[in-house]
Design a protein around this nucleic acid. Structure first.
Lengths: 112, 112
DNA sequence: ATAGCGTGTAAGATGTTGCTTAAACACTTA
DNA sequence: TAAGTGTTTAAGCAACATCTTACACGCTAT
């Protein structure tokens, strides 16, 4: 999970994941989508993603095709979802409690 | 989302999030759980989490109580879940395709 | 007011990350 | 075999993250 979350923390790598979500894409084609950075930079991101087991690689002749490996996200998704959902239901419960207790209030958490 | 995912990429901060998931916890109490690192280090992590809007702070006299702010995870969860689930259904589809096409196979993706 | 406690901030050392350029590798085709 | 194409690896560097120690802040209670 650690490797996956660290990999996903980078915006370029997230963009790469989106690119290879639905289809295999070659390293060169991926690099074309990022004109602002060099090919080696993209290649290094691909290595990071591969090491984190977030993508699969298929070598075909000269080229390497990358594709999302969604199982690699399982633990990370589970962790975040647990945090997110269980805690949201708690908030909902407390909102009800508060509603029950008093009607006028000075709430601290402003953005709910 | 960027801040949230970067914040969550650190294992210490993830552990802090778990601590403050169900109840308010004071900075000192949080720091006690991490004997290996100093209090200022914990304080800095708390600042990062606050800046990423992943926790709420309540000041009560001397102390500051932290608590998970699950809405802060919404975008990150959505992103990862989209990657995860849509792509898993694609894999399932392809598995069916492959099954249909031929029965003996040499699979590359080992950990499914 | 002053002492004490809980907590945050500042400054600096150290390791890590993400980039660039240059070079190497691997496969293809003449 | 030699040249060409797609891609990765190496080396070096600037920026950033995380930790530590020392200090400052703010509230509480003598």
């Amino acid at each position: 999970m650690d490797d996956a979350l660290r990999a996903v923390a980078d915006p370029t790598r997230r963009a790469i994941l989106v690119l290879v979500r639905d289809r295999e894409v070659s390293a060169g084609e991926i690099a074309e989508r990022f004109p602002e950075i060099s090919r080696p930079a993209v290649s290094q991101h691909l290595r990071t993603l591969t090491a984190a087991r977030l993508v699969d690689v298929r070598r075909a002749g000269n080229r390497r095709f990358y594709r999302l490996r969604p199982e690699g996200l399982a633990e990370a998704v589970t962790f975040l979802e647990t945090m997110w959902s269980t805690s949201l239901s708690r908030l909902q419960y407390e909102a009800e409690q508060e509603e029950r207790a008093h009607t006028g209030d000075q709430d601290v958490k402003g953005s709910l």
